[in-house]
Amino acid sequence: MSIKITENTTEDTTEDDTLYFGDVAFSSRLLTGTGKFASRDSIAPMLEASGSEMITVALRRIDPKAKEKDILQYIPKSVRILPNTSGARTAEEAVRIARIARAAGCGDFIKIEVITDMKYLLPDNAGTLKATEILAKEGFIVLPYMMPDITVTKQLHDAGAAAIMPLGSPIGTNRGLEMKTMIKRIIEVSKLPVVVDAGIGRPSQAAEAMEMGADAVLVNTAIATSHDPIAAGQAFALAVQAGRMAYLAQMAGEKTYAEASSPLTGFLRQ
């Protein structure tokens, strides 16, 4: 099974449908993550099958007993690294992780996660905003993971964020767009790319987010924990592209009553 997807589809619909974070251009609107893979060897083929151009990693203390290879060795050089600040409970901790990640050669991108709620892993918007302000001033391309909120969306614009990343549903739950209405409102007001991050469990949910006008989605758990992450990666890529095309095609709205698709004249019964 190999369907070539990444090159043709978007060019047919619009001249230029490039996604920008800061001044960095992306042609793929699917962001992926490196967590929870049963075999890390499937990360590279998954990236190739999905066409994803950016993938998240986390920073942790080394365990000398666990002789595991560093995750970066499993990621092709052509794919951009998006370090996250997972584990940070305060803005200060997030800033520290971001600085280490950049100094370690991961580039200017950073996904801010400031989380104190360990049950639902819902982000602390105040801490996220504070970390965004500090890191944007230091030249980072900041992608803040946030609880969908209009006011915070505007504040993140002012703080210098490069995108808005509202959650669909709690991390790793595969529950889809529980925050649908709020995400719609964020898409309405945001001048920055909106990336729906977390909770997307199926390609249909990714397509729905893209149809709504999200600029990209970030999918990790659903791909990594599927039986075949390579096929799942491709399925998500197709869904994201279909959703994007549908959004650009400006689909007609819903109606209450039936409206015949065939002419209502010239029936044979008369």
């Binding site: 993550g33 490196t34 990693v57 942790r60 080394i62 690294i81 997972s86 977390a198």
Partner: peptide, 28 residues
């Protein structure tokens, strides 16, 4: 303070220093 790999050999540790050894791992 982050220490570059080239400077490791010249970095002398002192009693009570706080040292962190980190690496990138899988994460979303």
């Amino acid at each position: 303070e982050l220490i570059k790999k080239d400077d490791w050999a010249q970095t002398y540790l002192a009693e009570g220093d706080k040292v962190e050894l980190l690496s990138f791992v899988g994460g979303g």
